[in-house]
Write a protein that binds this DNA or RNA. Structure first.
Lengths: 212, 212
DNA sequence: AATTGTGAAATTGTTCACAGCA
DNA sequence: TGCTGTGAACAATTTCACAATT
């Protein structure tokens, strides 16, 4: 069984977004070259990525936009919806609750958690905020499949452990720490400070960097 | 001149954070093994990454925590401060303005921009919000070196073009589109929906994925 | 004895180049 | 003819293994 690298998965997400755009503009067929251009990749890269999952194109012609879009949606798990909970209704958490892209793609924010009594048992943008003490119970009851962590760094690991103990296998972590989980659990981390550090590195070390 | 890969830069950020933690706990010396453990890497990886920038350790002993931390800070450009502006004071933008990590590391949010008259010429969390019409002028006047884009997808490229035209060489993009810039400008993109899609992919394709 | 620093080997990821097909 | 699909070549990255050093 071929293993898929995470750069391939990332690019699938990009292709999916491109395809939505091409579809909106009325394209019926596109070539790997077209797809590559919008994402600044090589056509070979596009074809190789897609080839891991099947033969979606027609030689001499290209790929049917709508069908390819559907196929990628299926591969990425976007043809179903997911029950998502978020822990930490602070600045970042709050922004994520309102983030339209999530809803659009079937990620349904079902529950919020916080440890601040002023927030607990109120509704935040239409979603109930629960006491993090009841995290495990609520996650199970509501069949939550993904948890977004938007808690302070010092609390992240502790909350992650609770989340894992509740049987959730997917965590999206916004706390600026590396969190540890058993290997059947997948964690993705978004560290915004790290991204700025990358930019700062590039300015300080102009021309000293690979690619761009 | 050895070129540095962007995974190496990312790991330097991680080492930096680890070192702050080790320092706080009173460690004076650490080994590549110690550093590797907290970030779930191999000791060889740590040594190789550091070796690109010099010989920071002592054979038989390890690395001096404080000095290594300072050296990495220098490499990442964290020993100076940066003038940062943010465009798009919506949900995401607003959260970023309050994001403590930025200030901590010398990224000073100097200016905000929006195109909503209700927000313009007011102060948002102590920072003035300007009309995006005056973007170019204000960026130059205030010697802004990095711009954070937190605008809707459809506006991102247009704003990016303005930013580039104002001479800014670093952009951190939160809009869910790929933006195009000349090659002397560095863009980093944070696409939160893409991260959830990755998690969804992993659930749908259990065990079909490399590493984790 | 312990740990760094680093060439060499192994692995992983990308691009090439062309056969195969519409 | 044009474009996909893919094995083979190539490039980049990671890991190994060991000499060098304290």
């Amino acid at each position: 069984m071929t293993k898929i690298s995470d750069s391939t998965v990332k690019r699938l997400s990009m292709y999916y977004r491109s395809l939505l755009e091409f579809e909106k503009r009325g394209y019926k067929i596109i070539s790997s070259k077209d797809l590559a251009k919008t994402e600044e990749l090589t056509p070979a890269q596009v074809r190789k990525d897609l080839s891991f999952f099947g033969n979606f194109g027609t030689r001499g012609l290209g790929y049917p936009v709508e069908e390819l879009k559907e196929r990628i949606a299926k591969i990425l798990g976007l043809t179903r919806s997911w029950n998502v909970a978020l822990v930490g209704v602070g600045n970042v958490g709050s922004a994520l609750v309102s983030y339209k892209e999530f809803q659009k793609q079937g990620f349904n924010m079902k529950l919020l958690f916080d440890n601040d009594q002023r927030k607990i048992n109120k509704s935040h943008k239409g979603i109930p905020v629960h006491d993090v003490t009841f995290l495990s119970k609520k996650l199970k009851e509501n069949k939550i499949e993904m948890v977004i962590l938007a808690v302070p760094a010092h609390a992240a690991q502790k909350v992650a452990d609770l989340v894992v103990a509740s049987g959730v296998k997917s965590i999206l972590n916004f706390a600026p720490v590396q969190i540890k989980v058993p290997k059947d659990v997948v964690v993705r981390s978004v560290n915004m400070a790290m991204e700025l550090e990358y930019l700062s590195f590039c300015q300080v070390n102009k021309g000293f960097l690979q690619s761009s």
